[in-house]
Design a protein around this nucleic acid. Structure first.
Length: 430
RNA sequence: GGGGUCGUGGUGUAGCGGUCUAACAUGCAGGCCUGUCACGCCUGAGAUCGCGGGUUCAAUUCCCGUCGACCCCGCCA
């Protein structure tokens, strides 16, 4: 007897198979019943010839069903299973606190998150993470194909990268340590080893923010590449990476896209660029919004610029480049011709910043000088600085926020919806 | 760190000084139904309206506090 799953049922039409999953819903028609079986991929209609056999089966119970796969135009998938036996593997002891078999989980976000292992059973909730997983494996596969090596940097660190304000302190066997807010230093150092590296890992920000686009533990998709000309190489690679990931999602996640009614952008050849001052010019001229020279883009500006990119430049993505030194960390490479700006960029996607990147300083002397300029002590960066004494090539890289890009891809209102178990200002469980 | 909005059966909402003995939908329980797909129909159970205090003849409704949730700004991915 073959174990089948809902993805490939059409191959088994006429055959008897085993299906395993959860009782999604039972439609008791009196003499017979429809049992909607939710397996790991979809919901299959199972016809139960005698309704009594499933009448007392609570929803969400785990079952094993043996039956014949029959082509049936009246069934939702165009086929259904005529059950010969239903075996109860694990009975649901209670009713779930919300209705998992509704088209949409119509519950408050906090209830969804309080009961995360249950709410994730909802087909739409589950679909979000299948798409996120596809994005992340596309990231890995693409970069591996481009000669990158995957690295795993420590998440327990002695110093921060950006100065120290937003670090979570931890007690490391009596010593003071922190949760890493970025793999920045490690991936740069590893450029000196592997040439090109990437990392998929959680990072930690101790900011007490309470917004729909921040969580305190998020999945950072990082890469760093050596021997570049400048930051344009980093951006060019990201364009190709995104095009690859989008086409993979469109190819492999059609079920999830349909379920979520997601509009996954067409992979695009190139992404337009605006310098930060050009972007501000657009904001002023087109939207009457004024930002000072030293201001970063605020959330409203990001939304307006995305709107502009879509309507005027025909792009869902927009690179903003040439950030001033004052808005970037100490490792950002200053421009040769205009040392007050850096060779750095952000990527806006559907109104939100989803990437920050740029060329880094590879010159030891310049880096030390910059650390001092930022009011930091080079001695506390000893381990970071060491490889820079030994031929660190010109390099650059970026970080993509996995939950952010997933949320924008699927038009989710809150970043928490794109995180399995979000950690925020007041959530530490489940 | 600053600001705003909201807490009513399991869930989602309505009601916003008395006529609330709190409504509707869904879920749940019992019954009927051989093609449902938001299945349908009948019957029933289920909420002292987040918590504490105050105003008032009278508070789910107004005020204060508190707890919780959500959102915006700052900061960032």
């Amino acid at each position: 007897m073959k174990q089948a799953d809902s993805r490939y049922l059409e191959k088994f039409v006429g055959e008897t198979v085993i299906l395993t999953g959860w009782v999604h819903r039972i439609r008791d028609m009196g003499a017979f019943a429809f049992l909607l079986l939710r397996d790991p991929w979809d919901v299959v209609q199972v016809v139960i010839p005698e309704a009594e056999t499933v009448r007392d089966l609570p929803v969400e119970s785990a079952v094993r069903i043996q039956g014949q796969v029959v082509s049936e135009p009246r069934a939702p998938l165009g086929l259904e299973v005529h059950a010969q036996s239903v075996e109860l593997l694990s009975k649901a002891l209670e009713l779930p606190p919300f209705e998992l078999n509704k088209k949409e989980l119509e519950v408050s976000l906090s209830l969804i998150l309080d009961h995360r292992p249950l709410s994730l059973r909802h087909p739409r909730q589950r679909a979000i993470f299948r798409i996120e997983a596809e994005f992340v494996s596309s990231f890995r596969d693409f970069l591996r194909g481009e000669g990158f090596t995957e690295i795993f940097s420590p998440k327990i660190v002695a110093t921060g990268t950006e100065g120290g304000a937003s670090l979570f302190p931890i007690d490391y066997m009596g010593k003071k340590a922190y949760l890493a807010q970025s793999p920045q230093f490690y991936k740069q150092m590893m450029v000196g080893v592997f040439g090109r590296v990437f990392e998929v890992g959680h990072v930690y920000r101790a900011e007490p923010h309470a917004t729909s686009r921040h969580i305190n533990e998020y999945l950072s998709l990082d890469y760093e590449m050596g021997f570049i000309k400048d930051e344009q190489d980093v951006m060019e690679l990201e364009m190709r990476l995104l095009a690859y990931a989008l086409s993979r999602i469109r190819e492999n996640c059609s079920r999830e896209i349909r379920l979520l009614q997601a509009k996954i952008p067409e992979p695009q050849e190139s992404i337009p660029q605006l310098t930060l001052s050009e972007a501000k010019e657009v904001l002023r001229k087109k939207y009457g919004k004024h930002l000072e020279e030293e201001d970063d883009l605020d959330p409203e500006a990001e939304k307006l610029l995305s709107e502009f990119a879509l309507s005027e430049l025909n792009s869902e993505f927009l690179f903003v480049t040439s950030y001033p030194v004052s808005l970037r960390p100490m490792y950002a490479m200053p421009d040769k011709d205009n040392p007050s700006i850096t060779r750095s960029f952000d990527l806006l996607f559907r109104g939100m910043e989803v990437t920050t990147g740029g060329q880094r300083i590879h010159d030891y002397g310049l880096l030390v000088q910059n650390i001092k300029k930022f009011g930091l002590d080079p001695e506390s960066f000893d381990f970071y600085l060491e490889p820079f004494k030994y031929g660190m090539p010109p390099h650059g890289g970026l970080a993509i926020g996995a939950e952010r890009i997933t949320a924008r891809l699927l038009d989710l209102e809150n970043i928490r919806q794109a995180c399995l178990f979000p950690r925020d200002i007041n959530r530490l469980t489940p």
